[in-house]
């Protein structure tokens, strides 16, 4: 037997990255701004999304959402009540969404007519960080009930985010939420990241969140097309 070394030098997630790049191209051509929502389970992704969909539809902006869960279509049913088209992905044990799953669940969605497409990832602060879904921005949520040091415990995903949304602000006082600590920890792991504090329940901060989404969307529309991968 002869022993030989074969150089490969290839990204392990190359296939996902290529599919994500194709999706990104497709979203940009259609003029739809795509937001990937990531957080722990129970941070309030679905609640924030529900209120966001309603507010945008109310303002005359067409929106749709894809929601990932291990099991059940509970979230899809909740979100569909807003009137927006919703697609549910059940991953049956997989702890994150992959670009291929997004591609498979776009059929029937009129991307050209949409202002925004939201992707609610599986509740998990570890695995979704490795998978590009072709989104324009990644929003990482942190609720006041979770502890101010979450960003330090999960720096990889917070560092990969474009915006942090602090949720359940109506409970801040009851939870003795240390706002300064939380903001400092977010800045430590992702210097300069925009932080928006909201309560989807009371509506606090929702105006700022919606304005942010629209600002980012118009900025992206003026930007040059995404480079080919």
């Amino acid at each position: 037997m002869i022993t030989r070394i074969v150089e490969i030098r290839k990204g392990v997630l190359k296939k996902n990255d290529l599919l994500a790049a194709e999706l990104r191209q497709r979203f940009r051509e259609a003029g739809v701004f795509t937001v990937n929502l990531v957080s722990s389970p129970g941070t309030g992704k679905t609640m924030l999304l529900e209120k966001t969909l309603r507010a945008l539809l109310h303002a005359g902006q067409p929106v749709a959402a894809i929601v990932g869960d291990l099991e059940t279509d509970n979230d899809a049913r909740r979100l569909a009540a807003s009137g927006a088209p919703i697609r549910q992905i059940n991953t049956h044990g997989t702890c994150h969404l992959e670009a291929e799953m997004i591609g498979q669940h776009l059929s029937g969605l009129e991307l050209e007519g949409l202002d925004f497409l939201f992707i609610e990832n599986v509740g998990n602060l570890v695995c979704p960080s490795s998978y590009d879904l072709g989104e324009d921005i990644r929003a990482c949520l942190l609720s006041v009930t979770e502890g101010e040091d979450k960003p330090l415990k999960y720096p990889v995903i917070f560092n990969s985010a474009d915006v942090a949304v602090v949720t359940k602000m109506d409970l801040a006082e009851a939870c003795e939420f240390q706002r300064d600590d939380a903001l400092r920890n977010l800045a430590e792991v992702r210097p300069g990241m925009r932080v928006i504090e909201v309560s989807a329940k009371t509506g606090l901060g929702m105006k700022e969140w919606l304005a942010f989404l629209n600002e980012e969307r118009s900025r992206r529309r003026q930007a040059p097309p995404a480079p080919e991968v």
């Binding site: 037997m1 030989r4 150089e7 490969i8 030098r9 290839k10």
Partner: peptide
């Protein structure tokens, strides 16, 4: 997250 190389026989 890369595969650098493999050693084969």
């Amino acid at each position: 997250l890369e595969i650098e190389s493999i050693e084969i026989e």
